[in-house]
Amino acid sequence: MNPTQLVLQLFNGLVNGSFYALLSLGLAIIFGVLGVTNFAHGAFYMLGAFGAYILFQWYGVGFWYAVVIAPVAIGLLGMLLEVTLLRRLYRLDPLYNFLLTFGVALFLQDVMRLRFGVQGQPYRNAGELTGATNLGIVFFPNYRLFVIVFSLLVCGLVWYLIERTRVGMIVRAATEKPDLTRALGVNVDRWITPVFGFGIALAALGGVLAAPMYNVAPGMAEELIIVIFAVVVIGGLGSIVGAVAAGFAVGIISAVSAVFFPPLANTLVFILMALVLLWRPAGLFGTEGA
């Protein structure tokens, strides 16, 4: 492999990693605070992409507005799901949450399939981010560079929110010891719905960013979501930093391995997960017993 190919694959890996990071970040936050493994996370990513598509096709609303409107709207939809359905299951076996969120994912996919069909819809609106930039030894599409930078900014912002603000401190505490946090006078339940909505909004944001790159289709998250679960496990269940770091790392490793040894590219993430679990059962950034 020549250096040009390697650099190109590194950047492609960062693009994939951007999506992995955004999705696993939301998934990790939701798992941490609610203890819910959200199998519908990929469906909300898909809804984010459809949100951008619908806003443009039906209302003429461009990409830059969609980046804000779609995640907020879908985040609110997530909050509605938490209030009406998820909340009823917290006291039951986690299996019920698996079934519910899996069912929601199937339902949302089928609704979109019914309305828009199985085939993907092209979304040809990426703001002014057309063309490519010369990175020295390789030209790389401007929009993909934007996805990398924007995702890093969002992850940084979320990191600041979680690590440096009082709300974030409460989220971290509730993630680690929910009952004790209540016993110290913090109304943990008040934060559950907004946190779920926030995690969903991050997934939807990933979908909006994906819309100009991939066909917007009901099944667009089917393969992605499996990788995202592996990323969250590698980073450490409930770990914010772990989710982001593992997201970008898995993106790069998968992209580079696709050149060196293509048959391994799709399974490498799961081999990595198995190795990490053997070495550190709590994940790379997870805390034992936390």
Binding site: R172, L180, R182, G185, N187, G289, A290
Partner: peptide
């Protein structure tokens, strides 16, 4: 009362495992 409301009435709970947050 809910657990957090009891704390807000002035109860201060120290569990047997100390309850120190590793992530804080």
């Amino acid at each position: 009362l809910a657990v957090h409301d009891r704390a807000r009435r002035g109860l201060g709970f120290v569990p047997d495992d100390r309850g120190i947050y590793a992530r804080l």
